[in-house]
Write a protein that binds this DNA or RNA. Structure first.
Length: 291
DNA sequence: CCTCAGGGCTCTC
DNA sequence: GAGAGCCCTGAG
């Protein structure tokens, strides 16, 4: 069982299992962590800037505070037994293979508003571009956090973005999604939708509510459900998962909605976890075997 | 159910 | 250099 300890520069989570920072930060669920040459990651989560260093089964959170241990436990989903999840998914031959590549994946519990905006930006976009836009928005409207002699920025609250125009968002690199972001912020601040309330709904109902917002279609809604609302039966179908599903399970012309239904039926409560292993797996094949 | 346009940048040719 | 494609959605 893992445990938190303090060390000279922060806190450390000792004896973690099923935990690999590269797999976690590289499986497409988050946009605010950047890898350094030494393999450590620096980033900001809910106003906390830290450097994360993995040494075997110990996770060092440089700059982490002892009073934040509950937060990090939640953020990294530490209470969940990923070994058990993987054992169940391994009954499927494709997953059995996929898990070998991303065995240390965990689904982060991220802040809802940040995830809503980040995944609106993700539509028809590339990961480096998404990261840049999210960073620009944070730098312009978030709070300063000093760490390691540099200035980091928290992702802004809805209020901070309320008066920001679509054109201003566009100037920060979000492209045509500027209108969607401005509209979603307006709906959230004015109370046309409550993310807290949505998160309490059943997955299908929550999905329906989220897709009422401009810029949120079925895929983005599934990402929000999975990465910030703990709806682990959500199955986001992006291009990579689409390719992997069509390659291993389905015909090449099956629609996105059919793939989504297939995944949810096949993997049930574990669909979201399966999706993450499949996404990571698919990206390993980039440029090979027709991917 | 379908098709298509829509930042801007990067990779491919 | 042009062209395709990008963790896709909205409009038609």
């Amino acid at each position: 069982m893992y445990k938190f300890e303090e060390y000279s520069e922060g806190i450390v989570i000792k004896d973690v299992k099923d935990f690999n920072i590269k797999h976690i930060f590289d499986c497409g669920q988050c946009f605010r962590w950047n890898e350094d040459k030494d393999g450590s990651y620096v980033g900001v989560a809910n106003k906390r800037a830290v450097r994360i260093i993995q040494k075997d089964n110990d996770i060092y959170l440089k700059g982490g505070k002892a009073q934040d241990k509950d937060f990090w436990e939640y953020y990294f989903d530490l209470k969940r037994d990923y070994g058990e999840i993987k054992n169940k998914l391994k009954n499927d031959d494709v997953l059995n293979e996929a898990i070998k590549y991303g065995e240390g994946i965990r689904i982060l519990n991220q802040e809802m508003f940040e995830i809503v905006i980040s995944f609106i930006i993700s539509a028809n976009n590339r990961i480096p571009m998404i990261k840049r836009a999210v960073e620009n928005i944070s730098r312009s409207f978030g709070d300063k956090i000093e760490f390691e002699g540099k200035t980091f920025y928290s992702f802004p609250t809805p209020d901070k973005l309320y008066k920001v125009s679509a054109d201003e968002f566009k100037s920060l690199g979000v492209g045509f999604r500027g209108e969607y972001i401005a509209s979603a912020v307006k709906d959230i601040v004015e109370g046309n939708i409550s993310l807290d309330e949505v998160s309490k709904l059943q997955t299908d109902d929550a999905h329906k509510e989220l897709t009422k917002l401009k810029g949120i279609g079925p895929k983005v809604a599934d990402c929000i459900l999975l990465f910030s609302m703990q709806k682990h039966d959500a199955f986001p179908v992006d291009v990579w998962v689409k390719r992997v599903m069509q390659h291993f399970y389905l015909a090449p012309d099956v629609s996105l909605n059919k793939i989504r239904q297939f995944g949810r039926d096949k993997f049930g409560d574990l669909a979201g976890f399966a999706q993450q292993y499949l996404f990571y797996y698919a990206r390993e094949f980039k440029g090979k075997e027709g991917f």
